[in-house]
Design a protein around this nucleic acid. Structure first.
Lengths: 340, 340
DNA sequence: TTTGTATAGTTAAACGTTTAATCATATATT
DNA sequence: AATATATGATTAAACGTTTAACTATACAAA
């Protein structure tokens, strides 16, 4: 890599101190900064151009104590939900001149810890985290150290942090109600076995809907170990569909679960909706291309990203005064005539 | 954000200079670095622990001239191909202690330019780029400035840079041959209208296969403007399938094109393979869940990521001697009994 | 003439590291 | 006794910025 030109190089060539060069190139207006004659300023800008000067953001960061970088930790960036969320956050942050560095925790406490530490050591100005199960202490620590922070997708009710999440309760309550209104009665729900509130709420929404329609006896919750491989998820669904035939509709509470469920449904030639009512999560081409197209819970991902960035920018800029923001966004049930 | 403890804080507390603290905490072994008595070292480590010292990587980067960061520029991180590629690169880079910052160019020259500049200003140690059409000058510039660089997915034959790409010619040659061997004759191919070599090669593979089976008269290439919306892609496919019925099989040359093609196929109730032979690109759940499961060209994404990281690490570490690496990986045709 | 103030800069420290050069003392070797 | 070597440190500069504090000159006003 060739040596880059620095302020010093320009200063030497023009015959001034680095201070004026810095001041000029930062475009400091009247009244503020160092005074420079217009011709000097012009000369400086010209030489900077000639030498192809580009500020070293690392040096700048060190001096200013701000890296214009935010760290994003998701479960897995190759998961379409997080991929799109990351993309939206990237876009929105760029509008503020911020760059985002992304890490995938794979829902592992250790990886999450390492990523947080790594990002912090790199002096990110703030963190956006979809926290994994068991990371409450990590998050509490960040909060206590007053690191600008916003949780997305999941949060800890015990902690009064910023967060932007789905109204998970409403999502499955509506989904379940929709199935019931369409004549389904023996409705099951498939979720991850997680203590995280978003999962608990999705289950709770289902339970309350079933109860409110006097279908308590038909409640059937299947909680799947998140460490299970995709194949194992499919097997678990098999139990539900094949061995335990006492079910006429099913709700999946994440995209991955939905898709793995579809594998099982397809393999066993189960027809939707004749044999089974179906509601999935998050949509995707699979759902649209399925025969018939599938009903699903659509999350407002762009909005989630935009709110998260807005909050973190607020934390970063008005470090002192910023109040806690806890935002709960509504999902939308995308209803396909033939399923659900 | 609370004030973080620095080397100076530890030095003051222990009563030594920052130099020894730095030396101790960097775990410099016998013979190298500063000599410190074992008890002093122990004390330093203990106080560092107590004060919860974490090195400021920004300061370190400035001093060492290396940020342990690589920049990755893809077309769109929310595209599953690039999402998974990014994930693999992230994983692999982390093994070397590197972090990756990702940017999406949206195939736009300007965005690509901005991202490159931004990443360079942030002093990334190297760049991995899936270059967009029209960015050859940007890439040439990087090369001339001796920025550690490796292209992925696409490359410029005019430029002798490092790259890791698919054997695109072989991919579509094999796909086309497979269709022909299965009795299809009037095979069309759908590609993006791009001057980029990877697209040209995918078309060339198809053309050569058709010619080598004496099917030159049946050649039908549809080049779609990449700026077109998804809906427009579907419309374009419509032309091919409906208006121009003179086709019995189709090859799509990217995942997005494949999926949009499937929308058209589904909407028009075209049956695969009775009405149309089908070969798509990159796979995905859609392909597996389709009825029938679809044949597709599988790219070795992990391998692509690993090779790219290996090369960039080599550039970064042996800055002087590193020879140019140009790696061409074979695809695999995933054959489903019923399609293609 | 002195004072005030506007203009056009310079100096030097600081951000938190790393590291080459130097220094002081104790012990071992000739 | 003089010299060499090992041990255990310190000092100071450097990475490339930013910025508060200061200086110097010119001109106008009192």
């Amino acid at each position: 890599m060739l040596k880059k030109t620095s302020l010093k190089d320009i200063a030497k060539k023009v015959g001034v101190s680095t201070a004026v060069v810095s001041s000029v190139l930062n475009g400091i207006g009247k009244g503020k900064g160092i005074r420079v004659s217009t011709e000097r300023a012009k000369k400086i800008r010209q030489i900077a151009e000639e030498l192809n000067y580009k500020p070293n953001e690392i040096a700048r960061s060190l001096k200013k104590g701000s890296t214009k970088t935010i760290g994003l930790i998701v479960a897995d960036i190759s998961n379409p939900f997080f991929g799109y969320l990351a993309r939206c956050i990237e876009n929105e942050a760029l509008k503020f001149g911020y760059i985002v560095i992304i890490g995938s925790s794979d829902e592992e406490i250790n990886k999450s810890d390492l990523l947080i530490e790594n990002f912090l050591n790199r002096q990110v100005d703030g963190l956006i985290i979809a926290p994994s199960e068991g990371t409450i202490e990590q998050v509490r620590n960040l909060y206590q150290n007053k690191i600008p922070l916003v949780l997305v997708d999941r949060f800890f009710p015990e902690l009064s942090t910023n967060y932007v999440v789905l109204n998970n309760y409403q999502a499955t309550f509506n989904a379940t109600s929709h199935l019931i209104k369409n004549g389904f009665r023996r409705i099951a729900i498939v979720a991850y076995k997680l203590s995280l509130i978003h999962m608990k709420d999705r289950i709770r929404g289902y339970l309350d809907a079933m109860k409110s329609y006097n279908l308590s006896d038909n409640i059937s919750v299947m909680e799947i170990n998140p460490k299970n491989s995709k194949a194992e998820i499919t097997n678990a669904c098999m139990d539900l569909f094949i061995k335990n035939k006492n079910i006429d509709a099913i709700i999946f509470t994440t995209n991955l679960l939905s898709v793995q469920g579809l594998y099982c449904i397809t393999e066993n030639k189960i027809r939707i909706p004749e044999d089974l009512g179906f509601i999935g999560f998050d949509g995707g081409d699979c759902f649209n291309l399925f025969n018939p197209p599938l009903t699903y819970v659509k999350q407002p991902i762009e909005e989630m990203a935009n709110e998260a960035v807005k909050i973190i920018m607020n934390c970063v800029n008005n470090a002192k005064s910023s109040k806690i923001s806890q935002i709960i966004l509504d999902s939308k049930l995308i209803i396909r005539s033939l399923s659900g």
